[in-house]
C-alpha cells in the first residue's frame, strides 16, 4: 500500500443545532494514499462533504471537531495556527468545491483572480504569475487569451469549472480535493471534465480525492474507493475490489441501483427505505433497518471497519456471507 498523504483517525464532527448536537461524522478513520485517485462515495447528507471541510478547516460556524486527528504527511492539521493554515491551504491541498460555478468573484476578471492567488502565497512577479495562470488554463483545455480577461459571467459553466480546476493547480499542490465537481453540468460537459481530471492525475501524479454521490462518475478514473453511510465509512478498497468483490450490503445495493442508459430499468433494485436521521441514528449497524441480511446481532453491535485482506476494509458483521453476485 502506498504511503498515506492524509490519515484521518477516529474523527468525530458535530453540528450544534436547536435539538442538540448532530454527529455528522462519527468515528471515521481513513487513509488517502499518496499519488492515487480516491473516491469518497455516499448519499447526500451522509457526511462526506463534512470530512472535506474538516480537512480544510472550513466547517460552518456551528460545526466543530469533537475528537480525532487529521494528519497530512504525518503533520497534525488540527494544531495549525491561523497564518500557517492560510499558507497551507492551496499550497498543499487545493479544492474544487461543490457549486463551483459561484466560487469566482463576479466583479473581477479571471486572470486577476488567478494571479492574486499566486501572489498571496509566493513572491513572484505579476508577469510570471500571469504566465503560469495561462499555462494552466491551456493545460485544462481553455484558450488563455480568451479567458484571462473575461469576467466569470462571460464564460460557460463548463469553462468556469475548468477555470477553477486550473486555479486549483496554481501553487502545485500535493493534493487536490474535488467536492462533487460535476454537479450542475450537463452529461457531456461532465464527461469531458472528468477526462480532464483523469489526464491531470496521470500527467502530474497529483493525489486526488473526489467526493461524489454518483458512482458512475468515478468508475473510469478513480483507483480507490471509500463508501460512506450515515456518518460512517462502511467499506474501503481498490476500485475492482469494491465493484466486483464487495463484502458490504450497502455497497452492493448502491452499485445495483445505478441505472444504465441501455439496461432494463425494472431490473434495478433501489435500496428500500431512507437514510436514517443523524439526530437519532439506529443502534448497532446503522444500515440494519434497510439491510436484507440483518440478524439480531446487527441491531446491538456496531461493526468495526476491519481489513479482510487485499487492502480491502469492510464494516459488516456478516461480511463473509455477503458477496457481489
Amino acid at each position: 500500500m502506498a504511503i498515506p498523504i492524509i490519515t484521518i483517525k477516529d474523527l468525530v464532527v458535530e453540528y450544534k443545532v436547536r435539538e442538540g448536537a448532530i454527529r455528522v461524522v462519527d468515528d471515521v478513520s481513513l487513509e488517502v494514499p499518496k499519488g492515487r485517485f480516491t473516491a469518497l462515495i455516499g448519499e447526500s447528507g451522509c457526511g462526506k462533504t463534512t470530512i472535506v471541510e474538516a480537512i480544510l478547516n472550513t466547517l460552518p460556524p456551528n460545526g466543530y471537531i469533537r475528537k480525532g486527528e487529521i494528519l497530512f504527511n504525518g503533520k497534525n492539521l488540527l494544531s495549525l495556527k491561523e497564518e500557517e493554515q492560510r499558507r497551507f491551504r492551496w499550497k498543499k491541498i487545493a479544492t474544487v468545491f461543490q457549486a463551483a460555478q459561484n466560487s469566482l468573484n463576479p466583479i473581477k476578471v479571471i486572470g486577476e483572480q488567478m494571479v492574486e492567488t499566486i501572489l498571496d502565497h509566493e513572491s513572484v512577479s505579476k508577469k510570471e504569475a500571469l504566465k503560469k495562470s495561462s499555462n494552466l488554463l491551456e493545460l485544462v483545455g481553455l484558450e488563455p487569451s480568451r479567458v484571462v480577461n473575461s469576467y466569470p459571467h462571460e464564460i460557460s459553466g463548463g469553462m468556469k469549472q475548468k477555470v477553477i480546476i486550473a486555479t486549483s493547480l496554481l501553487l502545485d499542490p500535493e493534493m487536490l480535493i474535488l467536492d462533487e465537481p460535476t454537479t450542475a453540468l450537463d452529461l457531456i460537459t461532465q464527461f469531458y471534465l472528468l477526462e480532464t481530471l483523469g489526464k491531470l492525475h496521470k500527467k502530474l501524479g497529483i493525489t486526488m480525492m473526489m467526493v461524489t454521490h454518483d458512482v458512475s462518475n468515478v468508475a473510469r478514473h478513480a483507483d480507490r474507493v471509500a463508501i460512506m453511510y450515515a456518518g460512517k465509512i462502511v467499506e474501503v478498497g481498490d476500485i475492482d475490489e469494491i465493484f466486483y468483490n464487495s463484502h458490504h450490503p450497502y455497497t452492493i445495493g448502491l452499485l445495483n441501483s445505478i441505472p444504465s442508459i441501455i439496461g432494463d430499468l425494472s431490473k434495478k433494485k433501489p435500496i428500500p427505505g431512507l437514510p436514517p436521521s443523524l439526530l437519532d441514528p439506529p443502534s448497532g449497524c446503522r444500515f440494519h433497518p434497510r439491510c436484507s441480511y440483518t440478524e439480531e446481532v446487527c441491531k446491538n453491535i456496531v461493526p468495526e471497519l476491519k481489513s479482510i485482506g487485499n487492502e480491502h476494509l469492510t464494516a459488516c458483521l456478516r461480511w463473509s456471507d455477503i458477496t457481489t453476485e
Binding site: 499550497k91 468545491f97 466560487s103 473581477k108 498571496d120
Partner: peptide
C-alpha cells in the same frame, strides 16, 4: 461561495475583506 472559495485559496484576509 466566492468568499469561502477565496478563504480556501488562502488569500490574505485583507484582500478578501476589501476586494
Amino acid at each position: 461561495d466566492y468568499v469561502s472559495a477565496a478563504k480556501a485559496r488562502g488569500l490574505k484576509e485583507r484582500r478578501i475583506a476589501i476586494s
